[in-house]
Simulated scan of single mutants.
Amino acid sequence: MNKYYYCYSPFLHEFLKAEGIRYITTSRNIKNKNVFWLYQQSNELSKALNEYSKMRKGFAEG
């Protein structure tokens, strides 16, 4: 597993922030100039990503 998670979605970033998960830093991708937030991998982050995925799937189906 990678030690870090690169988040390019502002919506996901806001969700993670609301869940109390802090990011390490924010930056821009050198190649495409897109902003990303860098998170350290953890069980807490994995749980939040799974929850976000289920939530998005529910919106897509509903």
Rank of each mutant, 00 (worst) to 15 (best):
K54W: 11
K33N: 15
Y52T: 11
F15Q: 03
N50A: 13
S46Q: 15
F11H: 10
K17A: 09
A18Q: 07
L45A: 08
K47E: 12
M1S: 11
N50I: 04
G62D: 05
F15E: 06
Y8K: 01
S27V: 02
L12N: 04
E14L: 11
Y52L: 01
S53L: 06
R28H: 12
V35A: 03
L12C: 11
S27M: 03
I21N: 02
S53Q: 10
E51W: 04
N2Q: 10
T26F: 06
K31L: 14
S46A: 14
L12F: 03
S46D: 10
W37E: 00
K54A: 12
K47D: 09
L16Y: 02
G62K: 13
S46W: 05
F11L: 12
K47C: 09
L45T: 09
S42P: 06
G58T: 04
Y52F: 15
K31P: 01
E44A: 08
I24V: 12
A60R: 12
N34A: 06
I21D: 00
E61I: 08
Q40M: 14
N43W: 06
A48S: 14
N50H: 09
Y52R: 00
F59V: 12
G58S: 15
E14V: 01
R56M: 09
S42D: 13
F59Q: 15
N29P: 05
N34G: 03
L49C: 14
T26V: 04
Y6D: 07
E14S: 09
W37N: 00
K31W: 08
W37T: 01
K54T: 12
T25Y: 02
M1T: 11
F11D: 13
G20T: 09
N43P: 07
M1Q: 08
K31N: 15
K31V: 15
